[in-house]
Design a binder for these strands. Sequence first.
DNA 1: CGAGTTTGACCGGCGC
DNA 2: GCGCCGGTCAAACTCG
Length: 201
Amino acid sequence: MNYPSNPNPSSTDFTEFFKFDDFDDTFQMIMEEIGRDDHQSSSPTLSWTSSEKLVAAEISSPLQINQATSPMSLEIGDKDETKKRKRHKDDPILHVFKTKSVEKVALDDGYKWRKYGKKPITGSPFPRHYHKCSNADCNVKKKIERDTNNPDYVLTTYEGRHNHPSPSVVYCDSDDFDLTSLNNWSFQTTNTYSFSHSAPY
DNA sequence: CGAGTTTGACCGGCGC
DNA sequence: GCGCCGGTCAAACTCG
């Protein structure tokens, strides 16, 4: 697989936008590949090496969530491990993203979300936040909680798959894209980048 | 005024 | 059966 360059989120270089697009497609391919596998068999770790190439490495222990190795890295696991009950065959597939976040607020992933709950979690000083996709026909949910072992990181659990494009993608693809709004756009891209790998989910 | 957030109540699964 | 806990609901509230 030909992995694209790392879209540096701090960059305001306009060309990064196209790399970002390529990356998103590649990530979707990876995730779809994962989707064909038995989710209990493996959990991939995605991260960028110093050469800014995306690498996907299978880790032997299933459902493992490792420590992120850099602010740019993210990891994916199947959160079923955290469920008390055993996995049912018709359970929805969950994908967990671990991202470094120094912000107090959750990063935007390009979709519009409506918060519908917040609960304290036993054993964690941080509450868990519950969100639904704002699109009426889309029942994707996400849960956001801070990593208790590493409060610098945020765990975002996505459940379901969006049946509509990301509003931010529509915006970025629009013909009347205005270069004068580049600063604002770059900010959006930065945020989207942080979670965009989850966009189809 | 509409959309999104807050927050207490409620519900169901699970372990004991 | 009971209590705990995670997840959801929905009314009240806030904000643009």
